[in-house]
């Protein structure tokens, strides 16, 4: 009997926590959505004066399309570059033992953890001299600083659980290095790569301060545009831009949820 009561209590408290969790997670998106359809939404109304002004602005003003394109372009290139540079590095860290590995590991992880304000401020002078300031190239380079280590740390755990024997087996069976890589290595680590890429994309996608310092106003990614509208109090357009901004993250979330369930790394 006592056990039954305890179980009932546990179920109830779990249910409560789950309901609170559900509300806490999803309610934040409600006002954003509502604002995007408002002309005016003043206290104390729970329903706004409806208008498509914000969405019209989104679909007709070239600055939104330009921003979106820039963000997609930059984040995609950063992700691909990080993957190309990060894959061998992660393999080295995940599968090899060598002197100084601890130090390298620490060094590689630092840029993903340390606030990069100092780095961006410091390197800006150099970028100006090299003509990289206010250019997409410059922004891509500065995004690499937090994204690449993030990619490496994600991939490293994939390699740590990786058994190189399957590669050896393939070689024994007559496959050369390239075929081994393409037909054995890649498929095995593909889920891990996908998750790492998706999250790395989001890290680059979300950057604000770094893009602002290096890219200035010419490289207007979506976060910069979003900030401008929020700062000026235009919550309607801000809300609409926010929804456009969050879409890729949502796509990534739904797309990768099957991979995420088993993944231990963030």
């Amino acid at each position: 009997m006592r056990n039954q009561n305890i179980n009932k209590q546990r179920h109830l408290s779990r249910k409560t926590i789950l309901i609170l969790l559900f509300i806490w997670t999803f309610v934040p998106f409600i006002p954003i959505l509502i604002w995007s359809f408002s002309l005016r939404w003043n206290y104390p109304s729970l329903i706004p004066e409806f208008s498509l002004r914000a969405w019209k602005y989104i679909f007709t003003q070239k600055e939104i399309i330009t921003s979106l394109t820039k963000s997609i372009l930059i984040s995609s290139i950063v992700t691909v570059l990080s993957l190309l540079i990060g894959l061998p590095a992660a393999r080295a860290l995940g599968m090899y033992h060598f002197k100084g590995k601890k130090l390298v590991s620490l060094l590689v992880s630092l840029p993903a953890i340390v606030p990069l304000l100092a780095v961006a401020m410091g390197i800006q002078v150099v970028f100006i001299k090299l003509g990289l300031s206010n250019s997409i190239t410059g922004v891509i380079l500065i995004h690499l600083v937090p994204v690449m280590p993030y990619m490496i740390m994600n991939l490293q755990s994939v390699f740590e659980g990786y058994n190189p024997e399957i590669e050896q087996q393939a070689r024994v069976l007559g496959a050369n290095a390239l075929i081994t890589f393409c037909k054995v290595t890649i498929p095995t680590i593909l889920p891990g790569i996908i998750v790492a890429c998706l999250f790395s994309f989001v890290v680059s996608w979300s950057q604000y301060l770094l893009t602002l310092i290096i890219g200035g106003a010419t490289t207007k990614t979506l976060p910069l545009l979003l900030f401008a509208f929020l700062n000026s109090g235009d919550y309607a357009i801000g809300g609409a831009v926010c929804i456009v901004f969050v879409l890729p993250a949502l796509i990534i979330l739904f797309g990768s949820s099957k991979y995420l369930a088993g993944s231990k790394t963030m």
Binding site: E63, S133, A217, T218, K220
Partner: peptide
């Protein structure tokens, strides 16, 4: 080119 603060443009030219 929209900026949040015009000082962004000024520091750019000075730079």
């Amino acid at each position: 080119v929209g900026v949040t603060s015009i000082s962004e443009a000024i520091t750019k030219v000075m730079g």
